[in-house]
Design a binder for these strands. Structure first.
Lengths: 192, 192, 192, 192
DNA sequence: CATGAATGAGCGTTCATTCAT
DNA sequence: TATGAATGAACGCTCATTCAT
């Protein structure tokens, strides 16, 4: 039954996601995953070639979720008019990340094989493409001579600051101040 | 003998550092470390409570080295006058990171326990303090109203872009262009 | 349908034979066999009590083939007259084995349960019976007082030497020399 | 302590030999071996790179024992004079093999990797060298023109018949008759 | 202090076999 | 009769850690 398969497959992926969050990558084992999914280890190997394949599926779904949520946000940002668009956009990214904080941290800081998780790897480039698209559609309030390099830099500024706010909020400076400053800087950056 | 202790201790830390670079965190075992240090595993446990303590010491020394090197650079930047100071400073950070690329990558991408390495954690705050100090000593060519939040943002921009250049150079944009843009942005940022 | 049954049964046996040759006994799994036969694993268990039963059927067919081929050869040897009969006979055995070399090797060197494959076990006795029959029909050029023990010894000599030539040709001595010597010895042995 | 090592090492090898005899190669596991040796599995891996290395050591010791026993026998055969020398020699081989019957069978019929057990592989060639040496030292009662090929054939006859007697005694013919015939044939073969 | 030796606990993976449908 | 899905029971192996000396 295809139904039964789907259920088992999903159970495995979700069990894995949960364990990654609770125990971290290194201490998440195939036996744990299968046990929490309520199936035998061997079933895991029916659906995945090995442990990292399950983890990869978790990553793929995570990336999907994040991009989809950001996609919806982008539409609203552009449609919603210039007014506070940047602020809305940045806060949308911030909230999206905050929601998946623990899981994102696993792939950012724990998954040991650099260059082996296509979906995660693709996030950076996708973000750039994304921004380029926004730039094109937002000709009204974005300066026309914004180069790719400059855009990439801006993305770095935004993402790294959001990451800092999400994963390691600085002690000496208030969240609010940092976010406000980030918004201000970004508006200045993109505006003519 | 305190002397012999010191020697053994150092040998262990250096063996560990070498193995982390060569084999990665997961494949570096206590037996490897001890063997390369020329002592017995049990001796490792005389000096350290466990594997991760050795790794933590490696991390601490790495952070020390990086900060020391940046400290020396900062002095030169300030003393050397305004001329191209920002460029020199940014390239110094870039080169420092590049030199330790492999080891930094271990702590960035392989060490499995987020939030358990004090020295690594302290890098962010230390970098901010550092920059605040520079700001004070460089009153001449740094705008006087540069807030802490703004400074933190600038650090984020600089470090995240350098990290990208070192660990994951973007395909669509040239290194040069990105560095040039970074320098230009930073000068604009700090200048009145 | 008996017809469909037969087809499936044969497909399983042939798939198994192929896999044994290609992957060896240990790496041939029931799932492989079923997959290559184009049926489900569970079907395999409809026709056979377990993995080794399939293997046993492969063995039985192999023995059958070998004996049938030798039978045809024996007739020709006897009918063809004395001239070089021994040489023709020995080379027929040699070629028959060579043709099935890989599969024979599986049962000789890989099948793990000694004394559990009736068909293979029966080969020895069958060979003796065979030779006794030849002896009866070849009264003309075989000495009349050739005892069973002597015949068994001769079979041992011939088969072990052929096995050596097929599976483990000696390095110091040429194939030709060994075969020639074997033929000469055999002729001397059976002739008055 | 080197003493402790030796003891553990030997215990492992002996445990392995016992299990091979009792359970066969495939069902002898590293955990079994270690358990019977009274040590932890991990200790097995201190002394051997893996399961097959233990098995290889068992094989090496077996071959050693067999060759040593045959060596002692050869001396007696040659020194003891021509009288019944062949019979003594053949019975010596027969008895030696009989003593290790089960273990020999494991390596002959169960060990799955052809061409991976140097010691076992060397047995054939060693036997030929052995016989060549005997031929040289026994000029008195061995025909001078016995070629290497002929000698190899004789070895095949003797070993295969002894193997048959040890592992698969034929039903229609008495042991005695077969042995007598073998001795007679061999004497005829080597004598002028 | 130092070491050779040992080990507990677990890991990822495999496969012959059996259900539920 | 046939199958998709599931599983029990192991297996070979690793490694951080600890004794006994």
């Amino acid at each position: 039954m295809q139904e039964r398969s789907r259920v088992t497959f999903d159970a495995l992926v979700e069990a894995c996601a949960g364990l990654l969050v609770e125990r971290g990558y290194a201490r998440t084992t195939t036996n744990h995953i299968a046990a929490r999914a309520g199936v035998n280890v061997a079933s895991l190997y029916e659906y995945f070639p090995g442990k990292d394949a399950v983890v990869a599926e978790v990553a793929a779904r995570l990336v999907d979720r994040v991009l989809r949520r950001l996609g919806r946000g982008a539409a609203q940002v552009v449609e919603g008019g210039e007014q506070r668009a940047v602020r809305r956009w940045i806060e949308r990214i911030h909230d999206t990340l905050l929601r998946e904080k623990k899981l994102v941290a696993v792939f950012l800081y724990q998954f040991p094989h650099t260059g082996q998780l296509d979906s995660i790897e693709s996030l950076g480039p996708r973000l750039l493409e994304f921004s380029q698209e926004i730039r094109r559609h937002a000709a009204g309030f974005v300066r026309s001579d914004l180069s790719d390099a400059s855009l990439q830099l801006l993305i770095n500024l935004v993402t790294s600051t959001i990451m800092q706010l999400v994963f390691d909020p600085p002690r000496g400076i208030s969240r609010r101040a940092l976010l406000d400053e980030l918004v201000a800087r970004t508006e200045e950056w993109i505006r003519d």
